[in-house]
């Protein structure tokens, strides 16, 4: 039951883009076409889950025992950068087709604040999900990270769909491009606010 709440909360209620403002740059950058949006979402999903696993372990078994929590930021960003690089190399070797699909998005992910944001959130914030406030254990963290990235994908795909239509419309000159996109995201965020309060 709790896992179900985590998933609903992470995808809809606290959607990472529309409610938490993380990962906006790539969200605006690659959502022009539905196909690139799905590609990017796939890559983000992969990296967020993997990096949360590694950073959780590092924090729990390396930083906390030695009281080095103040090195979190620097350690996590290095891990994420290295991980992205490694995933890129491994994918290239073992699954060229997947690499073809995700490859170009991978280098962009290091500076996607959604990845670092989720990694830091998971080890520093207390979550409730209906029960008592507590720190997330490894399994919960992974479910949370995965669901969050699904939420990212959802927002991205919805937005890309809207944007494909937007491109065909006659928009006032000053609004062309990013401004109208931002206003559209605003309306999308308003729609997602309808979910707020559903899972505490």
């Amino acid at each position: 039951m709790e896992y179900f709440l985590i998933i609903i909360s992470a995808i809809f209620v606290n959607n990472i883009v529309l409610a938490q403002f993380l990962g906006i740059c790539p969200f605006l950058g690659v959502s022009n076409k539905l196909s690139t949006a799905t590609g990017m979402s796939g890559a983000v999903c992969f990296v967020i889950t993997l990096s949360t696993l590694v950073t959780w372990l590092i924090n729990h078994y390396l930083l906390e025992p030695f009281q080095l929590e103040f090195l979190q930021t620097i350690a996590f960003i290095l891990v994420i950068a290295a991980l992205v690089q490694m995933v890129e190399i491994i994918l290239k070797k073992i699954s060229p087709s997947l690499y073809q699909a995700l490859g170009i998005f991978l280098p962009l992910i290091t500076t996607n604040c959604a990845v670092l944001g989720v990694a830091i959130n998971v080890v520093t914030k207390q979550f409730t999900f209906g029960g008592e406030p507590h720190m997330l254990n490894l399994a919960e963290s992974l479910v949370y990270a995965f669901a969050t990235s699904l939420g990212y994908g959802l927002a991205m795909v919805i937005f890309a769909g809207i944007r494909e239509h937007l491109a065909l419309n006659d928009v006032p000159k000053s609004f062309k491009g990013v401004p109208i996109a931002l206003v559209t995201v605003g309306i999308l965020a308003m729609a997602f606010m309808g979910f707020s309060g559903m899972v505490k």
């Binding site: 403002f21 609004f175 990013v178 401004p179 931002l182 605003g186």
Partner: peptide
């Protein structure tokens, strides 16, 4: 209140950008 919440952030930034462009 909507302007303090998430939707207002996006919409305000969009309109400010238009103004800046103009």
């Amino acid at each position: 209140l909507a302007f303090v919440l998430a939707p207002g952030a996006f919409i305000c930034l969009g309109y400010l950008m238009v103004l800046f462009n103009k």
